[in-house]
Design a protein around this nucleic acid. Structure first.
Lengths: 328, 328
DNA sequence: ACTATGTGTGTAACCGGTTACACAAAAGAG
DNA sequence: CTCTTTTGTGTAACCGGTTACACACATAGT
């Protein structure tokens, strides 16, 4: 690999001049510029990011921390972040925290040691302590904790809409699934639904479970055994909804006539289920992009319109809910 | 952040001594060791990976290049790679090439500029040229091209098994989906199936399509319109199979009685479909781990038992194929 | 006692960039 | 035509590690 000194020699100038041309900083004569640029092309020179990073204490890397890369919701977020960053000439180190705090700590350490200029974190535990003494900004994605800037979708509204649609479509004995207690976003959508259900003339019960579909599978079995009269389920995410749907079909429930299900997230898989899953759509890709933009604004000290960006959710009507007359 | 000089001062020794203790290299008196280690703890010192990387021209980073992070097969691979690397104290920069050669080039450049010690690539195009003049090893994952070391699953066998199972279960007019021509792995599973179908007393036809489910959706529609008599479909991957299954149910085909479907990959979603998808399982997680091990062996100049590692595939019987008597 | 070898430690160069500073030449001001 | 300001360029220090090399001292061999 050619170094800046090779380029300098070839162009017959000093390394400082090359650096100035490279970064468009300080003075450089037009003729010299050309000499340098020619040399760069001839040698196919690419600056060594590591050397740069060492001196500037800043790389061109962003750390992205995901809780579970296998949940399709997160790759979707990641794509949004990636696309936005790419347009800014930045790159991602994606870390999969696997819902384990040790891994999270480990990745934050790596990010630090590699001079990332910022972190976007979508992890569950979000031990805010971990993020406290960092020399670069942190943006939380799909998470709300403490006073960190964040991007998330409107969980209260999402829960509310889910409950409304469920009631409007005639379910009377509803099971409401509650995601991990420590996740503010999970609690919001839960709370939104609870408030709505309390106001409606329906019975409902609450079941707490994680976001993973392994847990959801087991939970679904017990749910149908213990409460066979349930005629509507509001899941805490699509993965759980898929597990429930699967179990419901297995034991012969008729969907949506006998049992309605509403998921949450609108991951790509939801459309592929049969019957396809009605769900509350979170704009994952856009959330990723917004988080990236927000982080860049913070890094560049741009004035922030708002530190917390909330995106709207929408109800996606598919086949696990019954049709109703449109008259609102 | 404390530097090695801070540690040296605190411990009352030179930086060279600290470095030697840090890396367990060269001599260091037991007492000095303790002094240094104490200072490290007191200052909570962590070596700056960037500085290290600059001098050694080697980081502790591995580049992982995926063609499409949204296809659940790849996160699964990534997890395998990640887990293995983590045990070796290494970290991943995951790049999503998005099936675009420009992005692939861009990421390889980033990998270079950040002194990765190796790349694992699962991209489609695998323009081997891109990987030619790198100063670090490359391992291909789920891909076979030219003479690069690689890890993949046995596609010929996979295709063969799929065809056998399909025939054994009585389908007579089979549609065989063929994945992207440029992908050797896709071609292998196709070829395996063709060979088997030719020997069997069945009609079959070939349809080429990409791995994305958007394409598969459209393809499924035309397939059922033009060839309504099809009674068995061997898909090129699970995502396509899911799209086909969805369309088949939509138009009222009875599965598996009237139409059998076999997928390929066994992504987590396959189990969640209804009816759940019979498929050829590729051990994605293990493939990732093996690729990581292989890369590490190359990096550490360990003798290689084999440059190309082929893992076996298995038929996973679920509900999109009919039951048969077990008598082999 | 005299060298050969092993142990323990420090000094300084190096990795490949960036930039503070010095200095010279050119341009502009009076 | 001198004096200031702007422009253009080079030298060398710096970022925070690693390591070649020099040197001091201890131990062992003869």
């Amino acid at each position: 690999m050619a170094t800046i000194r090779d380029v300098a020699k070839r162009a017959g100038v000093s390394v400082a001049t090359v650096s100035r041309v490279l970064n468009n900083k300080g003075y450089a004569h037009e003729d010299t510029r050309k000499l340098v640029n020619d040399a760069i092309k001839e040698l196919n020179y690419k600056p060594n990011e590591v050397a740069r990073s060492l001196y500037k204490k800043k790389s061109r890397l962003i750390g992205l921390l995901l809780p579970d890369i296998r949940n399709p919701f997160f790759p979707e977020l990641a794509r949004g972040v990636e696309d936005e960053m790419q347009e800014q000439g930045l790159h991602l180190i994606i870390g999969n925290a696997d819902e384990k705090p040790e891994k999270e700590i480990d990745y934050i350490q790596t990010f630090k040691q590699n001079n990332v200029i910022g972190i976007i974190s979508a992890t569950n535990h979000a031990e805010t302590k971990l993020y406290e003494n960092l020399s670069f900004p942190v943006v939380l994605l799909d998470r709300i904790t403490g006073s960190y800037p964040s991007v998330y979708a409107d969980g209260l509204d999402g829960g509310k809409i889910a409950a409304q649609e469920m009631v409007r479509r005639g379910s009377k004995r509803i099971a409401l699934l509650r995601g991990p207690i420590e996740l503010r976003t999970a609690q919001d959508r839960f709370k939104g639904a609870v408030d709505e259900l309390c106001d409606a003339n329906v019975d409902f019960q609450v079941i707490t479970s994680s976001f993973s579909f392994h847990d959801a599978e087991k939970m679904a079995k017990t749910l149908f055994e213990k409460f066979p009269e349930t005629d509507g389920i509001i899941a805490s995410n699509d993965l759980s909804a898929a597990a429930i749907l699967h179990e419901a079909l297995r034991i012969g429930r008729s969907i949506p006539d006998d049992l309605q299900i509403i998921g949450y997230d609108d991951i790509p898989l939801s459309k592929l289920l049969f019957p396809s899953l009605s769900t509350i759509r979170q704009p994952a890709y856009d959330m990723g992009r917004e988080a990236a933009k927000l982080l860049m604004n913070i890094i560049n000290n741009k004035p922030l319109a708002q530190k917390n960006i909330q995106l709207p959710v929408t109800f996606i009507e598919r086949q696990t809910t019954r049709k109703v007359e449109e008259n609102d």
